[in-house]
Amino acid sequence: MEKALTLKEVADLLGVSYSTVYAHKEKLGFFQVGNQWRVWPDMLRERSLADRQEEAHPRTRSVQPPDRKNRYPDFRTLEHERAVKALDERLARKPKGRSAK
């Protein structure tokens, strides 16, 4: 069974700051145990998969004026994809069989 991750562990896995993870803790699926926040690795994977599916099939379209085209990539999406990929790679490298104490 996998160990629930702390805010700091998720920040290290994703390569972002602790405060960024803390600000998005509910969206990432964190739950509170006493005064500590935890998240299951599977929950992070599910949330990232749901986010990717939502991006692929959005419920609403953004409407832009016809004379303006979106010339620049959405760097937030690119950064999110990198973070998801990094999390998947790091979780795959994590040694299995360690029991939580």
Rank of each mutant, 00 (worst) to 15 (best):
H57L: 07
R61G: 02
H80V: 03
R52T: 07
R52Q: 05
N35R: 15
K94Q: 14
A86Y: 05
R52W: 04
K101W: 09
S62A: 11
A100S: 12
V16G: 06
Q53N: 15
K69N: 12
V84P: 06
L14G: 00
F75H: 14
E54T: 10
Y22W: 09
L5W: 02
D88G: 01
A50D: 06
E26V: 08
F75L: 14
Q32Y: 02
L87R: 02
L5G: 04
G15N: 10
K25I: 02
D51K: 01
A23Q: 13
R98V: 15
D67S: 13
L44T: 01
N70L: 14
S62V: 10
P41R: 02
F75D: 10
N35D: 02
K69L: 11
V16L: 13
H24Q: 09
R76E: 15
P41Q: 02
R52N: 06
S99Y: 14
N70K: 14
S48L: 01
D42W: 06
F31V: 09
E9I: 03
A83E: 02
R98Q: 15
P73K: 10
N35Y: 06
V63C: 05
P66K: 10
D67Q: 13
D42F: 09
N70W: 04
V39T: 03
K69F: 07
M43R: 02
Y22F: 09
T6V: 09
V84W: 10
R68T: 14
R47W: 02
T20G: 07
F30Q: 01
V33E: 07
Y72M: 12
L91P: 04
G15K: 05
S99E: 15
R98L: 15
A56H: 08
A23C: 09
K3W: 02
K85Y: 12
W37H: 02
R47T: 09
R76F: 10
K69P: 03
A50L: 03
F75W: 12
S17A: 12
R71V: 14
P65G: 06
E26W: 01
K85V: 11
Q53P: 01
K25R: 15
H24M: 04
L78R: 15
G15C: 07
Q64I: 13
P58R: 10
K96R: 14
F30Y: 04
S19K: 09
K85S: 13
R90P: 00
R98Y: 14
P73W: 11
R93N: 09
K85F: 11
P66W: 07
S17M: 13
P73N: 06
Q64F: 11
D12A: 03
V63L: 05
L78K: 08
K27D: 07
D12P: 02
A86M: 03
R38K: 09
R93F: 08
G97K: 00
L5E: 06
W37F: 12
V39M: 01
A56K: 12
R76T: 12
D51A: 06
R90Q: 07
S62E: 11
M1T: 13
R59S: 01
T20C: 05
T6N: 00
L87G: 00
R38E: 05
T60E: 15
L78P: 04
E54R: 15
E89F: 08
G34K: 00
N70R: 15
R61Y: 10
D67C: 12
P73M: 07
A56E: 15
G34W: 03
Q32G: 06
R45P: 03
G34F: 04
